[in-house]
Amino acid sequence: MRILYFAWIRERVGCESEEITLPQNVSTVQDLINWLSNQGSGYQTAFGDLKIVRVAVNMEFSDFDHCINNEDEVAFFPPVTGGGI
């Protein structure tokens, strides 16, 4: 699976993207967040407040209970702030 990080989530995790093989007990976005949060302090800080974390699965905004598999592209980012001010 390909995971992408954007904005301050990217800064906290310390990389833009990574390839992982999903562990057997990970079947939803929430499972993935729980698993990632145990991979180091950067991840733990990035996912510390899930109210300000958004997710896209295969470039569609998704919920944390969305089911995922190894072929998916999952992106984590803060709420978007496009357009003018």
Partner: peptide, 26 residues
């Protein structure tokens, strides 16, 4: 619509915070 649905994030560099501050969604 594009303000809330297009995946953009703004990092502001200001006199107060030269390293940049991520703009929060409103």
């Amino acid at each position: 619509w594009l303000k809330t649905k297009a995946p953009f994030w703004k990092l502001e560099h200001s006199t107060e915070c030269d390293n940049g501050k991520w703009v929060e969604a409103k």
